[in-house]
Amino acid sequence: MTYLIWRLHRTHAIVSAVVIVAITALIVPSGIAIANSYHHAVMNCSVDHVGCDYVDGTVFGSNGIFTSLVQDLAMAVPLVFGILWGAPLVAGEFEASTEDFAWTQGVTRRRWALTNLGWALLVAAAWGGALAALFTWWRGPNNALHSPVTFIYFDVQGVAPIAYTMFAMALGIAAGALFRRVVPAITTTLVVFVAVRIATALYFRPLFAVTKNVSALAGVPPLSYSLGQDILGGSNTAACKTLKCLAAHGAYNHISYLPANRFWPLQGVESGIFLVLALALALYTFWAVTTREA
């Protein structure tokens, strides 16, 4: 069974390995350069007190486009897995009618389904993990300057990308088992993955936000991700033109933000959610493969 899987997905595996090597080759020099310039900038600031206001600019100024490209790439990797590897896994068998061959050998459909799902999810976890480790390392200096709980920054590092990749893979396979056609499976994977990821980022993560009132002069704490600030309250503030004036008249800042220290709890919870979704999709696939007629 494992030989069949290896033989059918060998090309995928080799291409994925090459892609990982290519991404590594792309990112490692940039990561080293960013780390070096970060240390320089911090050194200059702490020893010579020069450029302390421009650490961010010094480190990322010339790298902005590249940095965002790398992040977009990291965001897209799980989806690519789901579309190119997950979606054709079952659907491709049906399109070529090869399930007639595979399912009439000595292997039960149950075993066929379990072995395929097992390997696919394992590979997704391994590949997702390798890339997540790479991007996490690369983002080190950035995390010191920008909040790691910010949308996109949060999504490309830590352990959550592993769960995203497993989810995308399971989604592709399940869509293929549902439609038994590659193109509808790919389309569904694309739409559902993007929708679920955006929905969790926009509506689920804010549930972990801290909401409180602080002085009108204060903002959200450093390295936290601001979800909203509102100067409220106070009396006779109409004439005020500065925050100082507002504060003096009793106004306060109503802030809502994700603190940096919620990074790991959020990573854990979100990984959990996507793992459960992946597992549910894998169960559906198992059911569809073992009970639906061919």
Partner: peptide, 20 residues
Amino acid sequence: QDDGDFLASVGFLAQDIPLY
């Protein structure tokens, strides 16, 4: 198709000869 012994005893060649 969840019966390994059954599967082992029956050979099948589907229409249009599906192979990889």
